[in-house]
């Protein structure tokens, strides 16, 4: 038995020093470009998968979660410098750009549908970058990551909005994206809350990226679960999509809530057992 435990410990030590562990950046922070690259590639795959076949939506839902993480990280990067506006405002602003660009997809002539979702996502990237440039060069804000993270924030919210628009559509059952217009305000507010809250809920002296991103993943699964419920109520043709999305999102929710709570306990262990602040013992 003791031998088994020693072997297990050796395996753990070996794993911790392995390249895979380091690549997963468990001890080091993800940068915005890294997260954006993951969110963009997986997000585009997710949108195209849903457009190709609605039966692939449960898998696509998992691929859209990194876009939430990317948006929440962009809010964190910008808000950490102390904005002239609140964390809530920057979240609302980011989603305003992303969702506004995503909703413009409804104006595009069906003959040119192939430009979607690239037009919306890169349009949001451009508007985000231009706003960042104005803030940095004209208003003279002293936030070095302003241009990069404004663009990343706007674009990641556009990816999420485009995914939800695709998810609430079933062309074979004549449920077109345009029919989903009554859900636009909800899409807007739900994305905003999932993007701005992780940093707002974790901020303070002990804030770190690991805990913020775990909270973001948790809120991403909650948001996709909510849209699964909306799909369920929206149209009979989306019944299976809705149920499968709710199941996958619920599974994700339980995994992420466990991981997030572990991070919370880890960060507050000094307080957990004594009941007194560290300075008093």
């Amino acid at each position: 038995m003791n031998m088994d435990i020693k072997k297990l410990e050796q395996i753990c030590v070996h794993l911790r020093s392995s390249a895979v562990y380091k690549f997963l950046c468990i001890n080091k922070e993800f940068t915005s470009p890294q997260l954006y690259l993951i969110a963009l590639v997986l997000g585009l795959i997710a949108i195209l998968m849903v457009k190709f076949s609605h039966s692939l939506t449960p898998i696509a839902v998992i691929l859209i979660w990194p876009a939430f993480l990317c948006g929440a990280n962009a809010v964190r990067q910008v808000a950490r410098y102390g904005l002239g506006t609140g964390t809530a405002s920057i979240g609302y602003w980011g989603t305003a750009v992303g969702a506004t660009m995503a909703f413009t997809s409804q104006f595009i002539n069906p003959a040119y549908n192939f430009v979607s979702p690239y037009f919306e996502i890169f349009g949001a990237l451009i508007v985000g970058a231009v706003t960042g440039i104005c803030a940095q060069k004209i208003i003279k804000m002293k936030i070095p990551v302003m241009i990069r993270d404004s663009a990343v924030l706007a674009s990641s919210t556009a990816i999420i909005a485009m995914f939800f628009l695709a998810m609430l559509t079933e062309y074979s059952a004549q449920v077109f994206t345009l029919d989903a217009y009554i859900t636009y305000p909800l899409i807007y507010i739900a994305i905003t809350l999932a993007i701005l809250h992780p940093f707002n809920g974790s901020m303070g002296a002990g804030e770190n990226q690991k805990r913020t991103l775990r909270l973001s993943a948790l809120e991403a699964s909650m948001t996709t679960g909510l849209f699964g419920l909306i799909a369920l109520l929206f149209s009979e043709a989306l019944f299976l999509t809705g149920v499968s999305v709710i199941i996958v999102s619920t599974a994700g929710f339980f995994i992420f809530v466990k991981r997030w709570f572990a991070a919370v306990k880890e960060d507050t262990y000094e307080f957990a057992w004594t009941g007194y602040p560290p300075a008093e013992h």
Binding site: G84, Y92, A96, T100, V127, A135
Partner: peptide, 22 residues
């Protein structure tokens, strides 16, 4: 509906920029 949502979006985009100066 879409005009209303986009109008609100344009409002939010432009109302955050002045907050940086204020």
């Amino acid at each position: 509906t879409i005009a209303g949502v986009i109008g609100a979006g344009v409002f939010l985009i432009n109302s955050v920029l002045p907050a940086y100066t204020l």
